[in-house]
Simulated assay, not measured.
Amino acid sequence: MRRTMQMRATKLSRAILTGLVAPVLLGACQQAEPRGDATAASETFPRVVSLNPCLDAILVETARPAQVLALSHYSHDPAASSIPIARARQFAATGGTAEEVLALAPDIVLAGQFIAPATRSALERGGLRVETFGSPATIGESREQVERIARLVGNRDAAGPLLERIGQPSGSVASLPEAPSVLLWQAGEIVPGEATLIAGLLREAGFSSHSARLGLDQADRVALEQVIADPPDILLVAGMSAGQQHPVLEALANTHMAEFDPRLFYCGGPAIQPARAELAAIRADYESARQ
C-alpha cells in the first residue's frame, strides 16, 4: 500500500504542476506588472483584498497584479495554499483582521460566506465593499464564481482561460452497475456529502459513493474499524490521522488505495482541472490492477 500511495503522490505532484503551476505562471508572464506600480491599475480598476484561500486562487488569475493588495494568510502556507507558493508570495497577506484590511484601504474585500459578523460589520462601517462567496457545489457554480470575481475586478476577459480549463460538467457513469465504489477519507476521518463539488467530480469520473451507500452525509466520521469491516473498492486517503495511516489497512487486499491531496477538493476554480486528471489516473490504476 505504501508503494502504491507513494507512486500516486508522485503522479499527483505532476498533475498539480501541469494543472496549476504552468497556467498560473504563464498568466503571470502575460500580464506581469511591477509589484509596486499600482498607479495605472488602481486609477481604473478596483483594488482588492481577499480573505479566503479559494477566492485567492481565482483572484490572482483574473485581476491585474497591481489590483491585488493582499491575499489571505492561508495562501502563504504551503500546506493550505491553493496557489503555487512562489506565486502567492508575490503578494502581501493579512491575518484577516478588520484593522489590517482597513489599513490597506481596498475598494473591494472578497470573503467566504462565514466571515465573522463583527469583522464584516467593522469593514462595512469603514466604508469598504464586502463581497461574500459560498463553496461551489457544482462545476456550474464554480464557473459562476469565476465570472463574478472577474466582473468585480473589471477584467471579465481574464475569466476565459480559467473557464476553459474548468470546462463544462461532464456526464456521470456512476449509475452503471460496474462502477467501483470509492470512499474519500478526509482529514479528521470524515467524508464529503453528496451535494459537494468533489462528490460530483467522483461521479463524473465513473465512481459510485461508498459513503452514500453507508448512509453517511457531509462531515460524518468513518472510523478505521468501519473501513476494515466494510471496505470500498477504492480508498482515497486525504488525511494524516492515526487511523488513516494504520498498518492494518495493508490487510485490505481487494481495496485499491491512493493518497488524494486535500488542495484538490477544498476549492473549485483552478483546482478542478488537476482534480479531474488525478481521479482519471486513479481510475486507470484501479482498472489496470484488476487485469
Rank of each mutant, 00 (worst) to 15 (best):
M5C: 15
M5P: 05
M5K: 10
M5Y: 09
Q6C: 11
M7Q: 05
L12G: 06
S13P: 01
L17I: 14
P23Q: 03
G27R: 15
A32T: 13
E33S: 12
D37G: 10
A41D: 00
F45W: 14
V48N: 11
S50L: 06
C54D: 15
A57N: 07
V60T: 11
E61A: 09
T62P: 11
R64M: 06
L71E: 03
A80K: 12
S81T: 15
S81V: 04
T94M: 05
G95K: 13
T97R: 10
V101Y: 07
A105Q: 14
A105C: 11
I108K: 15
L110F: 11
L110V: 04
G112N: 12
F114D: 08
E124D: 05
E124N: 07
E124V: 01
R125T: 08
R125W: 06
G126E: 05
G126S: 05
L128V: 09
V130M: 09
E131K: 11
P136N: 13
P136Q: 12
E141T: 05
R143C: 01
R143S: 03
Q145G: 01
E147Y: 03
I149R: 09
A150T: 04
N155M: 07
N155D: 03
D157H: 05
A159L: 04
A159K: 09
G160N: 08
L163Y: 09
G171R: 14
S172D: 14
S175N: 02
L176S: 06
L183I: 08
L184G: 12
L184H: 10
Q186N: 13
I190M: 06
V191T: 15
P192D: 00
P192V: 00
I198R: 01
G200E: 11
G200S: 11
L202N: 12
F207T: 04
S208E: 02
S208H: 02
S209Y: 00
A212T: 02
G215C: 09
L216K: 08
A219G: 03
D220M: 01
A223S: 14
E225P: 07
V227D: 08
A229C: 05
A229H: 11
D230I: 02
P232E: 09
A238D: 04
G239R: 02
L249E: 02
A251I: 09
T255V: 06
M257T: 13
A258W: 00
D261E: 15
P262R: 10
P262L: 12
F265S: 09
Y266W: 11
G268T: 05
G268V: 01
G269N: 07
A275Q: 06
A277V: 11
E278F: 06
L279S: 13
D285P: 00
S288V: 07
S288F: 10
R290V: 02
